[in-house]
Amino acid sequence: MCQLPCMAGIGLRASHYQQVLEQRPALGWVEVHSENFFGGGAPLRTLRQVAEQYPVSLHGVGMGLASPDPLDAGHLRELRRLCDAVNPASVSEHLCWNTVGGIAINDLLPFPYTRDALTHVADRIRQVQDALGRRILIENLSYYVAFRSSEMREEEFLTELVARTGCGILFDVNNLFVNAVNLGVDADAFIHGIPAEAVGEYHLAGPSLMDGCLVDTHSAPVFDEAWDLYEKALRHIGKRPTLIEWDVDIPALEVLQGEACKAQQRMDAVGFTNANYSVRGELVEP
């Protein structure tokens, strides 16, 4: 059995590979985007070296769990192979779609939270978990449009997915913050609505305000309001491995470590360890 240590980690991007491998800074764990390591060569070699030093979380951005098209068997096979190669402490995907009618939109797209969609997504999470032989975490999305045809809220959809598939939840606190600002999503209802024991990881990042819309750019320090939500989550849900994500205008590694340090301080000050949270990377029961 393996899982991430209940500490703060950082999203590791190419600009910091060399520094991290040479200096081996104190980081609880690191997360990378799975697709960047599909295939072989230098990227995979680097990740193997990183995985020798740090627990690694594989975070997928391209599976498109809610796409109407059939799951991309090749994509799933590549993910399976990557898991075999680096033995990640956690594997996660987003609650989103990316492909319809054979055409991909390489983004994390929202969909109406309907009962039909729930059946479809649950089925595909099972397919992924069966192929990987492990539970995965599903991340709540930041989105900029909401659908009138939704029959439930995102937290209800996630709760049902957990019940039907045994998956865990990756609670992206910044995504919730962005949705609360943009679309008036009730953040407290979300925090209280998801099953605490299913939450296996938190994400934190900084968005950008552009033309009246808060865009989830992962390009800035975590906003104060998102820290407040994080503290609420720590109090209600408990301490979990927490990631600082930064993908655009990536700063010096020390800046990321500083953000991770702030998360760690809050975990230490506020969070309780909910010892029986149940999201672990073990084999899924048949």
């Binding site: 939109i105 390489n106 983004d107 797209l109 900029y144 449009v145 909401a146 659908f147 009138r148 045809s149 600002v181 943009n182 679309l183 008036g184 552009m210 033309d211 009246g212 819309c213 865009v215």
Partner: peptide, 22 residues
């Protein structure tokens, strides 16, 4: 019409984020 809800900005603004990302 009516498919999308954007309480704090226009639907066009919300859609623009996705078009720009794409």
């Amino acid at each position: 019409p009516g498919e999308i809800i954007c309480p704090n900005y226009s639907v066009a603004r919300g859609v623009e984020v996705y078009r720009n990302n794409y």
